[in-house]
Nucleic acid binder design. Structure first.
Lengths: 299, 299
DNA sequence: TACCATGCATAAGGCCATTTAATGCATAAG
DNA sequence: CTTATGCATTAAATGGCCTTATGCATGGTA
C-alpha cells in the first residue's frame, strides 16, 4: 500500500501550465485574466511544493528548469484532457433533451408537433418517454416533464400549457344516426364511452341534465383519451374529451363537438422543470418552442 | 480560431473525481479531508457550470448521470497524470544535487571526500561543476555553491567551512637541500612558487622578514593552489598554501609546514544556498554531511 | 408501525488563500 | 544615459471555500 502524495494547489498548477506554455509570467497573467503578481505568487507556491525552482529567472526572459521541463508537458496534456472532457460533457449535456410526459399528451398533442421542434433544433436529440407518474427530477435523468396537475410543485417552474377542459365529442355519422344531437339529453340515447368517468357526471350536471347511474351503463373503460378518441372517431360512441387534444379531428370533421359547454376540474397540463435549470439552453429552447405552439394553436 | 472555454473551478473538478470514484459524497469528503457539506457544495458548483446534473440523488446512494459518466473517466485519468507528473518532478528535484564550486576547493578538498557523501546517499546523483564566479541561483540551475568570500551574500544562507589561512609549505627534500628551514628568512634562499602572490608579502610581513621585490623574483604564477601544491610536492619550490587543502600531504609527509604562523586575509570558504531552499531534503543532507566532515577534519 | 441510522441539501458565518495595487529592481534596448 | 520590459515583493482587500448545525427523505429494524 502506498500513501498518495497530496497534489499541490490546482490553481498553482494551472498557472504553471500557462506560464510554461507562454514562457512568460506576464503573458500567462493576461491569458488567465489576472495580474502578473498573482502569477508570480502561484509559481512560488508551486516551487515550494515541488521543492525546486521551476523556472530560471533570466533578464527579460524565463526558462524552464529541468524539473519544470519534466513537469510541463504532462501538465499541459492533463489540462487538455480535462478541457476536452468538460467541453464534451457540456456539449452532451446540451445535446439531448429528455422529455417525460404521459401517454395522452404525447400521442394527442406532442407527437404531431414535435417534428417542428426537431427541425428548428437539429443539433438537439429528443428522447421522449412516457411515464404514468410525475418524474422526480433529482432521481431520474429527465430534463423536462409535462404533466397534469395544479401547477404548484415546489422547486419546479411550471408553465400552463392547456386547460384540461372536457366536453362530449362524437363522429358526425353517429350524431346523424339519431337525427342529430340537438341538446345534451340526446347524448343519453347513444352509447357513452367510459360512462363511469367522473367527467360525464360533471358535464351533465353543468348541462342541467339529470343522469344517474352513468357508471352502470355499458361501455368500456379505456382510461386514456387517445383510445377513446379513436373509438369515438370510429363511431362507437360518445367520448368526453379535451378539445385541445383533438383539434385536428375537429378541424377535418372526423369528430364534432355538439355543444360549446366546456367543463374542467381545476387541472391543467403543465410544462415543468427544476428552477435551478431555468437557464439551460435546451430547456429555454423547448420552453420557447412549446409556448409558441400553444399560442398558435389557441388562436 | 476558437475561443477556449474556461474550465470550471478545479477544486470542484477534483471533488467530482473523488465522488465519482467512491460513489458517495460522504466517502469522498473523508478522502479529501473535508466535510460532506463542502463536497455537496462543490458538486453543485460544477453542475451549474456543466449545465446538467452529474449525479442522480437516490436514497442512500447516488449514481452518475450520462453526463457524469462521460466526464468521470477522463477526469480521473487527467488527475492520475497530474499526480504522476508531480511525483516524478518532485522525485527528480530531489534526486540530483548540483554543486557549483571553484576548482581549488573541488580538487583539493571535495574530490577526496565526496565519495563518502555518495555512499551515504546512494539515491542522490551529484553533479559537480566548477565555475570561476559565484553562481546566481536565480539564473543557473544550481542547488548549492561553495565559494570564498566574507559570507555576507543577501538572500543566501552561508556556512563557514574552512578559513582561507595560508602559510608556506614545501617538500621535505627541498627543505633538507638547504640544511633545513629553521626560520622564515631561510625561505628566501629557495625558489618561491608564484612570488607575486600578495599572500607572500603578507606572510613575510607577519613574520617580520623584510622581503621587497618579491614580485620580480622568477617563478610561475599558476594561480590555483592545486597546481602550486603539486609543484611544491615535486620539490620545485616553496608554495604559500591553505593547510586545510593539504591535510593529506602534510599527514603523509609529502609536504611540510615549517612554521605555525598562519595568516589570513579575512576570507573563508563557505557553503551557500538560497534561504528559500533551506529545508530541501537534498540540501539538508549535503549541509549535514559537509559540516560533519569539517568537524572531523578540524579535529 | 414506530424508531433509528444513513446520506445528501441547505443556511449562516468565518477564515484564509488568492488577488490587487503599488513599488522596487535588474537588465536590455535605443 | 535614458527608457522600457519583466519579475519580485509588500500590504491590504476580497470572496471562494469550508465548517457547523440542521433538515429532509429513505431504508432498515424491532
Amino acid at each position: 500500500m502506498h500513501k498518495t502524495l497530496p497534489l499541490p494547489p490546482l490553481t498553482a498548477i494551472r498557472v504553471f501550465e500557462a506560464v510554461a506554455r507562454h514562457g512568460s509570467f506576464t503573458k500567462a497573467a493576461t491569458e488567465l485574466g489576472t495580474t502578473q503578481a498573482a502569477v508570480s505568487y502561484q509559481i512560488k507556491v508551486l516551487e515550494d511544493r515541488v521543492g525546486a525552482p521551476l523556472f530560471l529567472r533570466r533578464p527579460r526572459q524565463i526558462a524552464l528548469t529541468e524539473v519544470g521541463q519534466r513537469l510541463a508537458p504532462a501538465v499541459t496534456q492533463a489540462f487538455e484532457q480535462l478541457s476536452e472532457a468538460y467541453v464534451t460533457a457540456r456539449g452532451g449535456a446540451q445535446g439531448t433533451l429528455v422529455i417525460s410526459t404521459i401517454a395522452t399528451f404525447a400521442s394527442n398533442w406532442l407527437a404531431r408537433r414535435l417534428g417542428s421542434f426537431q427541425i428548428a433544433h437539429p443539433s438537439l436529440a429528443v428522447r421522449l418517454q412516457t411515464e404514468p407518474h410525475l418524474v422526480d427530477f433529482s432521481r431520474e435523468e429527465v430534463d423536462i416533464g409535462i404533466r397534469s396537475g395544479r401547477g404548484d410543485w415546489p422547486g419546479l417552474v411550471a408553465h400552463r400549457l392547456i386547460n384540461a377542459d372536457f366536453t362530449p365529442m362524437l363522429s358526425p355519422n353517429l350524431a346523424a344516426s339519431i337525427g342529430g344531437v340537438k341538446e345534451p339529453a340526446d347524448l343519453l340515447r347513444l352509447p357513452l364511452l367510459d360512462p363511469g368517468d367522473p367527467w360525464w357526471a360533471k358535464w351533465f350536471a353543468a348541462a342541467n341534465v339529470p343522469a344517474e347511474g352513468l357508471s352502470s351503463r355499458p361501455g368500456a373503460s379505456m382510461g386514456a383519451q387517445a383510445y377513446e378518441g379513436n373509438a369515438a372517431t370510429a363511431g362507437q360512441g360518445v367520448a368526453i374529451l379535451t378539445p385541445a387534444f383533438f383539434a385536428a379531428e375537429l378541424a377535418d370533421g372526423r369528430l364534432v363537438q355538439p355543444f360549446d359547454l366546456l367543463c374542467n376540474d381545476d387541472h391543467a397540463y403543465w410544462l415543468v422543470y427544476p428552477e435551478t435549470r431555468r437557464n439551460s439552453p435546451k430547456i429555454s429552447a423547448f420552453r420557447q418552442w412549446i409556448l409558441g405552439e400553444i399560442g398558435v394553436s389557441s388562436r
